[in-house]
Simulated assay, not measured.
Amino acid sequence: MTHPITHTGISRRRAVATLGLGGLAVTLVPLSAEATPDSAKKLLSDLVKAAPKAGKVQIKTQEIAENGNTVPVRITVDSPMTDADYVKEIHVVSDQNPQPGVASFRLTPASGKAEVEFRMRMAETQNVIAVAVMSDGSAWTAAREVKVTIGGCGG
């Protein structure tokens, strides 16, 4: 019987994922049991101290997701990403998923641009809400409704 050779060191891919590429790190947000518009709002108010204003944030995703199992989402924030003016955090919540917290991203000027891209599962039609916290403490937000025709979270 042959045994596969295993490598006990850390791979370059794991090191990049662990340390964060270009100053980007992902933090999982503590999640509650069932998302509602109110629980999504509360989570954002716990994460972001400033009252978010509309603008600077864009959410790019499908208007209609034929399958909620994997919906691509891209969040971009209008920011020069300089030492004096950059996006510190991007928080993403959903108001109808089993959990309101989707992801939180921490950025630095070394990130180069204020853009994150990921895929998420959506159980049903819902709003995806993103809030960007800037280096000066201000917060900006955007929301986008995604209509799901086949649920991705057991629906």
Rank of each mutant, 00 (worst) to 15 (best):
T108W: 07
I129N: 07
A33P: 07
G68N: 04
L28M: 10
A40S: 13
E124L: 09
P100S: 10
T108R: 07
D95T: 11
V57A: 02
P4K: 15
T70Q: 15
F118C: 03
T149G: 04
D78E: 15
T125V: 03
S39T: 15
Q96N: 14
Q126P: 00
M1S: 14
Y86I: 03
W140R: 07
G9Q: 12
T108M: 03
R106N: 13
A110Y: 13
R12H: 12
D83W: 02
Q126W: 01
T2A: 15
A15T: 06
L43W: 09
A40H: 10
Q96P: 01
R121I: 00
T141P: 00
V131N: 09
R13Y: 14
M81D: 11
T2N: 15
V57K: 08
D46W: 11
T82P: 09
I75C: 09
S94V: 02
V71Y: 00
W140Y: 15
G137Y: 06
P37I: 03
P72C: 00
S39C: 01
P72F: 08
T108G: 05
V148G: 08
V93M: 09
C153A: 12
L44H: 10
T18G: 14
G154Q: 01
V73P: 01
G9P: 05
P98Y: 15
A130T: 00
V133F: 03
P30I: 08
H91P: 00
A17G: 01
V116D: 00
D95V: 02
E145M: 12
Q99G: 11
T82W: 12
K41E: 14
V128K: 01
R144N: 04
T27I: 10
V77A: 08
D95Y: 11
S135W: 11
T149A: 06
